[in-house]
């Protein structure tokens, strides 16, 4: 029983079950049927344990403390807005100073390997050591850059960055999708190159996407400020909650609103679909789980599907979508077939 009690993942299954833990421990029991009794006993022991004297705040204290906290926050907010007002006249002071999350979504329909190989030497001094990080499909990874900036890389992505940034500029090159948490350094702007488009920030968080097989470049800003330049010399400034869509064919940038949840949730392992077609769903799943999905339907599925999955294995996701959309599926290792 010792092994179970000591296992953090077992405790997680008891306290906070999700599809992953349930799936894992169901399999575990199948493999160790003789441990059924231990399993139940350990589970119940964990559930039975609690504080002998559990205390709660009195309702009046609960409300009183919260009122004080909120009053303090209001004061603090007013103080901060005054600081921002007094600095007006400089370029976007409030935005520069605000802690920011920038979201940046980029999609290409053409192969852009050419741009990467050609552009890096231009923008990064040659003596700097460049590191190339590749994330395979089905995986995600987080890396910390030399200046303290943190990058969360999505499946099938590549980031090229210098081991040390030069003293006056920070530049990285991305292919795929990433969420950046850029360390603030006003003297050294941070530039992300994605093919023909580059995005410059001073110290914010943002997301970049650059898959060969997709059509547009999209830059979506949650808060803060971001400047986007294309190689024609056009410059676009984005305000929070605006998204820039760059068409590689037309070479134009169009601004529009966007759904932050839909665009940023991947970095927290949440798979979101919003009115997605079966083709859009399978494209996303292939990359997310590193599988190949074959659609083998007698009659096409016309409906659009919306849904959300956090940390779920592929079969749970397919069960959910399949139930809603009315299809069956078969998984054979890395190959999935979708049938009516």
């Amino acid at each position: 029983m010792r092994d179970l009690l000591r296992d953090e993942f077992f405790i997680k299954m008891v306290n906070n079950p999700n599809a992953d833990t349930k799936h894992y421990w169901k399999r575990w029991l199948e493999r160790h049927p003789e441990r059924q009794e231990d399993f139940e006993l350990a589970k119940q022991a964990i559930q039975s344990i609690k504080y002998k004297e559990s205390k709660r705040l009195l309702e009046s204290d609960y409300d009183g403390i919260f009122a004080k906290i909120r009053a303090f926050k209001k004061l603090q907010d007013e103080k901060e807005s005054n600081i921002i007002l007094s600095k007006k006249g400089k370029l976007y002071p409030s935005m520069v100073w605000a802690a920011a999350v920038i979201l940046f979504l980029i999609t290409f329909s053409f192969s852009v390997v050419y741009f990467i190989s050609e552009k890096i030497p231009d923008d990064l001094s040659l003596h700097e050591v460049l590191i190339e990080k590749n994330i395979p499909f089905g995986a995600k990874n987080t890396i910390t850059l030399a200046d303290g900036s943190v990058v969360r890389l999505n499946s099938g992505s590549q980031l090229i960055f210098p081991k040390q940034f030069s003293p006056d500029i920070r530049t990285v090159e991305l292919k795929g999708e990433a969420f950046f948490d850029v360390a603030k350094d006003e003297n050294r702007p941070f530039t992300i190159k994605t093919g023909e488009v580059s995005t410059q920030v001073l110290g914010t968080s943002f997301n970049i996407r650059y898959y060969d097989d997709e059509e547009n470049i999209e830059v979506a800003l949650v808060s803060g400020i971001v400047r986007i330049n294309d190689n024609q010399g056009n410059e676009t400034l984005l305000k929070p909650l605006e998204m820039a869509v760059y068409s590689k064919n037309a070479k134009t940038i169009e601004k529009k609103d966007f759904n932050a949840r839909l665009v940023t949730s991947w970095k927290d392992n949440i798979l979101v679909f919003e009115k997605a077609s079966i083709q859009q769903i399978t494209d996303k799943l292939e990359r997310w789980y590193n599988v190949k999905i074959k659609i083998d339907l007698d009659s096409p599925i016309i409906g659009l599907y919306s849904g959300e999955f956090k940390d779920e294995p592929l079969d749970v996701v397919l069960d959910g979508i399949g139930y809603a959309s009315g299809f069956q599926y078969y998984i054979d290792d890395k190959f999935v077939t979708i049938k009516n």
Binding site: E40, K50, E53
Partner: peptide, 29 residues
């Protein structure tokens, strides 16, 4: 400080872990 009690009420499933058993856990704690 941090006194622990093992309580059958906290169990969500039909309690196989009777009061007697909880008392054994209590005693251990």
């Amino acid at each position: 400080r941090f006194e622990i009690i093992s309580s059958p009420e906290a169990l969500m499933i039909n309690e196989q872990l009777s009061e007697e058993k909880c008392r054994l856990i209590d005693f251990a704690c």
